[in-house]
Amino acid sequence: MTPTALACCAPLSREPLGRERAERIAPLLKALADPVRLQLLSMVLSHPGGEACVCDLLPAFELSQPTISHHLKVLHEAGLLERDKRGVWVYYRTRPEAMEALVTLFAPEAATV
């Protein structure tokens, strides 16, 4: 699922969701459906400068570094995060187009006057 493919789609409130579109969107939502991944996305979004190192995220969880890295990889593969290796650490930031696509997907249809 690429955020670009999601961004081109109409909000769910505009028209019923077809099978093909639902199959394209489901992996993205599945990535977000895990509480740890949702927390990680929130932490990256709210971190000063809009990016966070794995070392910044680890203290918030009672999970190992490989487990946190796995969850971040899932978010990256879903197209929600970008990553950048600097030395031994990997830094993550959200993909703006993915965040906009999620907002658009769940936006209520504008009222007509």
Rank of each mutant, 00 (worst) to 15 (best):
C53W: 10
G50F: 02
E97H: 08
R95Y: 01
S69R: 08
H47S: 13
E15C: 13
A22M: 11
S64A: 07
S42K: 09
D34K: 03
R24Q: 11
T67P: 06
G50I: 00
L75E: 05
L32D: 00
E77I: 03
A78K: 01
Y91D: 09
E20R: 15
P16Q: 10
F61M: 03
W89N: 15
H47A: 13
L17Q: 10
S42D: 11
V90N: 07
A31C: 05
T67Y: 07
L72T: 02
P96C: 08
P27I: 08
H76S: 12
L32C: 05
A52K: 03
L81D: 02
L28Q: 01
A31R: 00
L38V: 08
L45M: 11
H47F: 09
A101Y: 00
A33H: 05
H76D: 09
L29E: 01
V88C: 11
E20V: 13
E82Y: 05
T94F: 02
A60E: 14
R21Y: 05
Q65P: 14
P27L: 11
Y91V: 02
E20P: 14
Y91E: 09
E82W: 03
L38G: 03
E15N: 09
G87C: 07
P96I: 07
H71Q: 10
P16V: 07
P66Y: 03
R14D: 14
L81Y: 02
Q39L: 15
Q39G: 11
S64V: 06
M99P: 00
R19N: 14
D34Y: 06
H76M: 10
R14M: 13
Y92G: 03
V36F: 04
A101E: 00
P48S: 09
P16D: 10
I25S: 04
S69K: 06
E100P: 01
M99W: 00
E20N: 13
L80H: 00
A22Y: 08
A31T: 02
